[in-house]
């Protein structure tokens, strides 16, 4: 964590200053990209699940991630003042952040999207943008518009042979993401609610007819998606060391890019897309220019949507007439 506190615009991951051999540099970028990709994956899953079920780009999803990070910070601050040990703080911060983000996701759906089912397509999207603007400003006014330092919660340990190339927090982030992704995949595939979700995604009316409570499924989708974003929010905040109310906007768009890249609506697609985006960004900023960090992601987004809107794993939609 040699780069803690660098007040760059709002980077997701700040690289180490130490530049070793070319190979080491490559590996450093690679692991950095993997970490980025992991965080994008955690957020992108929420986008893709919600889109799969109600065909809505949940614009406020980035804000859920941001609220997760803030909740994590608040928990860490309170417990830190009470003198809890680092690792306990991390676990508790993640748990509380998950609960709160899930609650926010649930409430947002009830307020901003549920009354708009059956409205023209543009309406819930505009409502989502309004919600996103509202939440950003809510956090800004209730907390602060400055960058807040985030304590380093992930314990430091040495990885033999890779010192200086990969940090312990990167290891933890990637490991947690892998576990979460596997768990989610199993849940969607074999869990009762997971099956109900897949059924609802395919045909909402039919799912309703066979007795699936669509409202419950939609709420559950928001809750799960928001929880994943909260995990990502706390982990990355601890890794970078600072947060502000605006982090959800950029991260949200990038995660959305990842979801689209993989094929929106597809869960493995979101993971793959996130990985590709994370690595692309890491190598592009490492080898080309760091000034245009965000431009790479946006350009990639524009290019995919123009040339392959269905993404890597998405299905080409057939028009119903």
């Amino acid at each position: 964590m040699n780069s803690r506190g660098q007040a760059a615009a709002c980077p997701l991951i700040v690289y180490g200053n130490r530049i070793g051999t070319l190979m080491e540099y490559f590996l450093e970028l690679f692991f950095g990209g993997l970490t980025r990709g992991s965080i994008y994956a955690l957020i992108a899953l929420g986008y893709t699940m919600v889109y799969g079920i109600i065909e809505l780009i949940n614009f406020a999803h980035g804000e859920i991630y941001m609220i997760g990070a803030f909740t994590g910070l608040i928990v860490a601050g309170v417990l830190g003042a009470l003198g809890f040990p680092g690792f306990a703080i991390l676990v508790l911060a993640v748990i509380v952040a998950v609960i709160y983000s899930a609650a926010y996701g649930f409430t947002i759906e009830k307020i901003a999207y549920k009354p708009l089912r059956g409205a023209p397509r543009l309406s819930p999207l505009i409502s989502a943008i309004g919600m996103s603007i509202f939440l950003q400003n809510y956090v800004m006014l209730a907390q602060t518009s400055d960058f807040l330092p985030f304590p380093s919660l992930i314990p430091e340990f040495k990885i033999p042979g890779l010192t200086g190339i990969i940090t312990s927090s990167e290891v933890v982030i990637v490991a947690v993401t892998v576990v979460v992704c596997v768990a989610l995949t199993l849940f969607i595939k074999y869990g009762k609610l997971g099956k109900a979700m897949r059924a609802t995604a395919q045909n909402r009316k039919m799912a309703q007819l066979v007795g699936i409570s669509v409202n419950t499924v939609i709420s559950a989708t928001f809750v799960i998606g928001s929880s994943l974003a909260a995990v990502g929010g706390v982990l990355i905040a601890s890794h970078i060391g600072q947060i502000n109310y605006y982090i959800g906007f950029i991260a949200g768009i990038k995660a959305f890019t990842a979801a689209v890249l993989g094929g929106i609506g597809s869960i493995p697609g979101a993971m793959l897309g996130a990985l590709i985006l994370g690595l692309t960004e890491a190598f592009a900023t490492g080898y080309v220019s760091s000034d245009y960090e965000d431009v790479f992601a946006f350009a990639l987004l524009v290019l995919i949507l123009i040339f392959r809107p269905a993404g890597i794993m998405g299905k080409q939609p057939t028009q119903k007439v």
Partner: peptide
Amino acid sequence: VLRLRGDYLAIVTLGFGEIIRLVLEN
């Protein structure tokens, strides 16, 4: 971009707007 569906169009235009701003800045 105009052959994209409504919600994709929204995101692409958002991305484009940000690209322009970032280019102006950098």
